[in-house]
Amino acid sequence: MAEPSPRRGASLADGLAFLAAVLVAFVFLFPIYWAFSQSLRNPLDTFTVAGFGIPWVNFTPTLANWIDQVGTPETLRSLANSTIVAIGAAALALALGTPAAYAVARFRFERWKNRDITIWFLSQRVLPPVATVVPFYLVMRSLGLLDTHLALILVNATFVLPFVVVILRQTFLDLPLELEEAALVDGASHWGAFWRIALPLAAPTLAATGLIVFAFTWNEFLFAVALSSRNAITVPVHIAGAVDTRGVQFWFMGVRAMTAIVPPVLIALLAQRYIVRGLTLGAVKG
């Protein structure tokens, strides 16, 4: 880590930096905290609570909203749908993207060079989704797949594929080549070297990548709202729909926002190491 060498007054500067860190942490946590605080309030307390809305200090908290909202069939179904879609999309994207990442990391391509292939995969990540939503809608409609898990799995796997390729390509490049070469000398096929040597070594990254793309899929809204109407609605679509029919009921919104936000956020914390590299398409190694 690069640290400026210690100077006089460094401890004061460190103290100020610590205070600044607390302030910054407060600002970036506040909205999530606020949703949580709202979720613990009576409807009557929603607009009358003073200050930072601290439970027990500014109002008497209640679990009534959580009990009311989390158990409803609609909420449970949207949670189940989001889980199914996110797991399906993550599995599919890993199955497609891992061999492709191995190919660009380990083999030499000539007509289209390795870097061209990598860029071709990665450029999907930057495409605006609204550019493909109309054709996807029409194709899914003519296939009778509107409002199904399958449609959302197919679409989301496409969006997260570049992420899988960029993370795993670098992982395979970082693995020592000798192990796979030894296996090849011993008569293993390329597929065997991939399947029995490289893949197990990459397993932790594979798991972390799966978690991150799960979170991306969980958060996707535009395609979910375009392609689902009743049976396949995911958590974000459920939230938007509840607002359409009943208006924003702040106390319930707090609960719903928390159920949407908590799973992807926890998952991202588990897979922190790969986030910077993944989000910059490999441009910066975090």
Binding site: P236, I239, I261, I275
Partner: peptide
């Protein structure tokens, strides 16, 4: 990391 992964619609 929390804001980056908080569901944008819920946010």
């Amino acid at each position: 990391i929390l804001p980056i992964f908080a569901t944008p619609l819920a946010v």
